[in-house]
Design a protein around this nucleic acid. Sequence first.
DNA 1: CTGCAAAGTTGCAGTGCGTGTAAAGTTGCA
DNA 2: TGCAACTTTACACGCACTGCAACTTTGCAG
Lengths: 204, 204
Amino acid sequence: MQNTPVDQPEVLGLRERKKRARREALIDATHRLVGEHGLDAVTVDAICEEAGVSVRTFFNYFETKDDAALGHAPWQLETPAGEVFAAGGPTGHLMLDLQALAVSFLTDPPIGRERLARAMELAAKEPRLVARHLAWFEQHKGQLFALVERRLGQDGPHTPEMVGSVLLFLTHATFLRWDAAGGHGAADDHLSAVVTELRSILSD
Amino acid sequence: MQNTPVDQPEVLGLRERKKRARREALIDATHRLVGEHGLDAVTVDAICEEAGVSVRTFFNYFETKDDAALGHAPWQLETPAGEVFAAGGPTGHLMLDLQALAVSFLTDPPIGRERLARAMELAAKEPRLVARHLAWFEQHKGQLFALVERRLGQDGPHTPEMVGSVLLFLTHATFLRWDAAGGHGAADDHLSAVVTELRSILSD
DNA sequence: CTGCAAAGTTGCAGTGCGTGTAAAGTTGCA
DNA sequence: TGCAACTTTACACGCACTGCAACTTTGCAG
């Protein structure tokens, strides 16, 4: 059950710990204030005051006020699940492995489960956040395509773009369904339902 | 070959004509300047000067500088194609009709073909624009779902959300493929290729 | 043609996001 | 203990975008 990525030291230095603490403090402060007053009524100044940090520092951590609400960090695709996928696993069956990867995106969020839940809650009320989230995905599409390309090689029947787009679609659709269910249930089950319905529509 | 929506008079008043002319002038001015200097180097002030219009007026036409570059107008889903789809046509076969609708989105853009091509060109160089475009789609998702819901009724096997999402996926994927082909070829053909590959991936 | 109501444009002042820069403070390490 | 690398912070600035109130233009009825 331990979470020990290979190339990171088990115990972090003071500097790194402080950085993470600050990041989380900023996200929490944002969630607190936005949950109470709404996204547009909360200024970055207010968030920084709440978190006890200068405005300039805020923007060292997040590109955007919205990013803080969503807890966005630069996406790390070098996760164990990502590597397994690129290497041709876990089953060797493309569609199943895409599903496994999508599940890993949803169940091991870099932000932590409760914070993710808070972010989802806010996004449901503030459409702008959903848009920003999509934009963030878009920003990392290149990385994602590269990952898929490693898996496919350049000789397969499918284009990395198309496969990557399908992966994003599955992830997003599952996310929505999960959210609609109030965050209950396992990601696997929702994803299965999505795939089933997608197949049904296509072969209708 | 004539384009005569039902509830609009054949000849427009001076007011309406001026409005459209201004909108197009603003889009063209934006395209000209952004194409030359890049999106971030062009201020709204500059665009307005180029178009001979006050800044305040600019924001009466567009929510955002980026919207002007993309030529975004509030989406009218009450198109002939939309109505046909909602009514169960044109073939009565869901998947085929989704494709027909997607094609109509791509071939009858509210903005006009050349302007759309210009916008695509800019979007390829400025990732922000793609993101904004997605956000704009997201804003109109509700309308789109409503349209799909009219078609499906509430008793069908599929959820409007899922069908709507598939529609967006098809449209977007086709758009990308079209763009990658340099804007050449018919939308139909690219869409068919997308559907074929999607089926192939899913049943792989 | 005239005059009135509706719609549209404009300048202005203001809010707030986001960035460059340079100085001051912290942490890592020899 | 002291130096090098990294962070935070204050300050100043540019620009996107908005509300408002005056002004101009268009549509239309008499």
